[in-house]
């Protein structure tokens, strides 16, 4: 596959440090991936269209589908481990416990080489664990994971399309609208939550 074709891969990068966001964004763009960066786990979930309250409801409604344009397709999530509020590990668990998101590969980055932490992430379904600072040689390991997800997804879509009828399209549109509204209210809610996490000191993710 040529370089141009790689730009179809979209990576969501999550890091609370602006320096590291800038760095990972550049690393991924150099590798011709499309990149979205966010500074927290909750913003990542928001971007993915998953909210904590929605988890149960989402089970029969895949959020990553070419027919529903409410979500941008994400082919891989790369997240820092140690973040205030929701840690990278929490984010990983939420993604892996969501029926609509669980197939998205997740890569965890951490500045500390703690074997128990690495194992815990891998057991929870992380595809890779990168030690920070992340390098180009690390980023080169991402593509195989995304390729694998693409294959899975294509299978999934084929099954889906068989069962879908035209009548359902309207239904989907209305769902889309209500989701849009929900999203907006969540965003507003988030601002207050953000402020709270700034006041209370962020979890100590050193010896866990």
């Amino acid at each position: 596959m040529g370089v141009a074709a790689d730009s179809q891969f979209h990576v969501l990068a999550v890091d609370d440090s602006i320096i590291d966001r800038k760095l990972i964004e550049r690393l991924l763009k150099t590798s011709s991936f499309q990149v979205t960066t966010v500074d927290s786990g909750s913003k990542a979930l928001e971007f993915l269209g998953l909210h904590e309250e929605d988890e149960d409801m989402n089970s029969n409604q895949p959020s990553v589908s070419p027919n529903i344009h409410q979500e941008v397709e994400v082919n891989l999530i790369i997240t820092d481990y140690c973040m205030p509020g929701m840690t990278g590990y929490d984010l990983l668990k939420k993604v892996k416990n969501s029926s609509s998101l669980k197939d998205i590969p997740v890569v965890i980055m951490s500045s500390e080489n703690v074997p128990s932490r690495i194992n815990r992430c891998l057991e929870e379904g992380a595809d890779e664990f990168f030690l920070k600072p992340v390098r180009l040689s690390d980023v080169n390991k991402l593509k195989p994971h995304m390729m694998r997800m693409k294959i899975k997804e294509t299978d999934h879509q084929e099954q889906n399309q068989e069962s879908k009828t035209r009548d359902k399209e309207e239904e989907i549109e209305s769902q889309q609208q209500s989701n849009g509204n929900k999203r907006k209210s969540m965003e507003e809610g988030d601002i207050t939550r953000q402020n709270k996490t700034q006041i209370q000191w962020w979890p100590y993710c050193r010896f866990d």
């Binding site: 440090s17 320096i19 590291d20 760095l23 140690c82 500045s111 920070k132 000191w201 050193r206």
Partner: peptide, 21 residues
């Protein structure tokens, strides 16, 4: 002194300094 807080700041400082070398 909240040493956890101090440590969290130093942790961040260590991360950013290592990210730029």
């Amino acid at each position: 002194i909240d040493y956890k807080q101090v440590d969290a700041h130093v942790h961040q400082f260590k991360g950013s300094s290592s990210s730029i070398g």
